[in-house]
Amino acid sequence: MSSGTGDGTSTLSGRGAGTAVVVGAGVGGLATAIGLRRAGWTVTVLERRAALERYGTAFGIHPTAQTALDRLGLGDALRVRTVPYRNARIRRPDGKVLAALPLERIERRWGRPELLMSRPHLIDALLAELDRLGGTRIEYARPLTDPGALVADLVVGADGINSAVRTAYFGTRSSPRPIGTVAWIGIAGFETGLYGETWGEGRFFGMTPVEPGRTNWYATVPAATRARELREAFTGWHDPIPRVLAETDPATWVRYEMRHLYPALRAFAADGRVALVGDAAHAMTPNLGQGACTALLDAEALTRAVAAAGPDGLPGALDAYDAERRRSAQRVAFGSRTLHRFMTARRPALRDALLRMLPG
């Protein structure tokens, strides 16, 4: 079993060890590999890219995901590179505050704040822990052409929204669906001191702290919007949004099409030896900021179940993982998609009136 000791470390023992192939070296895949190694499993990670992406966006780490990191033995190592997320507001383009993000309620409920961490730091911390544990081989530039040919006791699909593992073992009923918007993300080389999200008509802009001297920002606009049009899309919006865009080099901006997995999968496990984690299982829009968190929760729950059961008990362990994670993750995905519709309303007057009724 895997259990937190209270000081950010973990102890983990299992009923024997087996072999596992983890497909994908993102947050969910690396965290899963760490949990399996702690249980004594021999792990191979297959990554289609020649090197891991280290673009500098920020992840919000919810207290529940912080607990998962503690159980994986990573809590203390990661907390030294995070900043707490507090005092963020939802605003109109003219700067009028409509509501507060529920960060204070989160902190009161869980006894600790949501934390923000840059993606490169999280990836590097996960890689460093795998290296420290030893016994894991990461094979880069390994696109998966035949998932059915993988030979291991356990196969974990952590290969994102276009998951080859999901297609091979779960079919094509659930597939990536575009939602008509794109997101641009970047890092400004100064601290804005003003954080949260600004919701306009069919678009929104967000800013969060990420580390001293820098601000993480993201902008969601209609899918047809090109990079050269992004600054114009937010002309006249309150400070410091125009400055953030003006002083960030467009060559460093990252664009991605907003998609989600639809319809929801009927199971996260198949064949008694295959499991999905992260976006492969429940890719969602980023509006709730829970993509990395759900991947970490998946990884911890899966490896905890597998460690307790051992290779001979894999079918039951995967059923337990599915029962623990599927409905919870899919509720988050549905909530995120619903919030996206609300945030990008074409007639925002009613939306803004409803926001003003929320507790501050």
Results as ranks from 00 to 15, higher is better:
D271K: 11
S13Y: 12
R91W: 03
A51K: 15
T252S: 11
T5V: 12
R92M: 08
G73W: 06
G134Y: 08
A100I: 00
L78D: 04
P84L: 07
L358T: 15
T225M: 11
S118D: 14
L245W: 03
T285Q: 07
G73A: 12
I106T: 12
T338D: 07
A100N: 14
P286C: 07
R351G: 10
G29S: 06
W110Q: 12
L69T: 02
I187P: 01
A267L: 01
I123L: 14
A333W: 01
E229Q: 10
V23P: 05
A292I: 04
I161P: 00
Q66P: 03
R214L: 13
L194W: 05
A227L: 15
A269D: 10
G56W: 10
V221G: 03
A88D: 09
L36I: 08
L116I: 08
G289P: 09
L288N: 00
D7Y: 13
A345S: 11
P93Y: 10
T248E: 05
H121G: 13
G75V: 05
A270D: 10
L36D: 06
G189Y: 01
G75Y: 02
A50S: 15
R91L: 15
T19D: 11
F342N: 08
W184L: 15
A267G: 15
E129K: 07
T192A: 13
P212A: 14
M343Q: 14
A39H: 04
V332S: 06
A128D: 14
L358R: 14
G16Y: 09
R203D: 03
L46Y: 02
G180W: 03
T82R: 05
T44K: 12
V274C: 03
